[in-house]
Design a protein around this nucleic acid. Sequence first.
DNA 1: GCCGGCCGATCAATCGATCGATAGGCCCGA
DNA 2: TCGGGCCTATCGATCGATTGATCGGCCGGC
Lengths: 202, 202
Amino acid sequence: MAVTGNGGGTPARDRVHRAAVRLFATKGFHGTGIRDLAKAANLSSASLYHYMPTKERLLADIMAASLQSLLDAALRELDGVDDPAERLDRLVTLHVTRHAREPMRTRVVDNEVDALTPASRRDVVGIRDAYEQLWSDALDDGLRRGVFTTTRPATTRLALLDMCNGVARWFSPGGELGRNDLAEHYADLARRLVGAPPRPPR
Amino acid sequence: MAVTGNGGGTPARDRVHRAAVRLFATKGFHGTGIRDLAKAANLSSASLYHYMPTKERLLADIMAASLQSLLDAALRELDGVDDPAERLDRLVTLHVTRHAREPMRTRVVDNEVDALTPASRRDVVGIRDAYEQLWSDALDDGLRRGVFTTTRPATTRLALLDMCNGVARWFSPGGELGRNDLAEHYADLARRLVGAPPRPPR
DNA sequence: GCCGGCCGATCAATCGATCGATAGGCCCGA
DNA sequence: TCGGGCCTATCGATCGATTGATCGGCCGGC
């Protein structure tokens, strides 16, 4: 393996993906040129194409991988948990923690869906739907068992998800609130939204 | 006044602005070409420049006008209202109603801020900050007077705004919920979020 | 000596923006 | 009432720059 004049020990493929996430998040997919991407990854624009078939496919891969990893983590997190309020807590905590840890990646996933070709979009939206279905199920389950209270559960679910998604738009690691405190606060807010009893103090 | 081969009685300036809102909202600012815009407005790309100095300035004007109109309406709405919960109700109702009535325009305002030049961005963000200050004031007021309950009011305000902003992302006029019912539901949710007593039934 | 990683040069297409020109209505002086 | 100058609205053609993508070839380690 030749390590020539690149940007440190990081493998080139990783550098490309990381640079893409950062640039797509800050300047948008269409606002990022192939040459911007190359410069940020310490490669020529030609070499870029050794690590991606197409700019659009690079975006699609990033989005699909991010969503798939979130979905997997959520399934792991919910495994064996029965109490609806606890299930909601875990979904919110996971979601917010991730959005705070990787706000750039999340912003790409949330904002660049309609830069995808129809084929890629179908894949990405499919994963996203499966993930959001977990939230719907948790909400419905809590309502059925009388733990949650809300008219219009569908709308409440959307409000809840939008609230949690927002974190990626403004969170910065240097802020007054750490990731974990933030996630706990959001779990409290979520319980209020769905009319569940407050979380027991630790 | 010559009405030649344009697209109906609508003045050309309006057609340009409307087309820009629609295209910027669906394809993004950088994803929309001057020629797309011209075709959608029934003009040549040259004629376009009789109604805008620059593509970027067109975006900035649309965003500033939309935000300024929202800020004005909010000031009007709050005028003379003292009860903190009622103030919050009015902010939420206005915000959600607008976002549901003009989701495209709102999506442009929310998503294309970093397509602006630094100068334009300063103007736009200034208006947005003034508007969000109204929410902060309402929240602080309610907390000071013991009507609201929340630790971390700054974070709660962000969560609240993100929740309300989300409406523009998914609302469609044909849905099961009308604009007014939706706004009322969100007012209920907002009260829950800040720990205020439920709104009295009408 | 071959092969994966990498690049400079370059492709056609499209980008945002500008040019000079034309057509038609309006106003004002004769 | 005419006529000429002006203004607004519009266009086709085109500008230089940049876009995403491709090509042939070089280089160094196995």
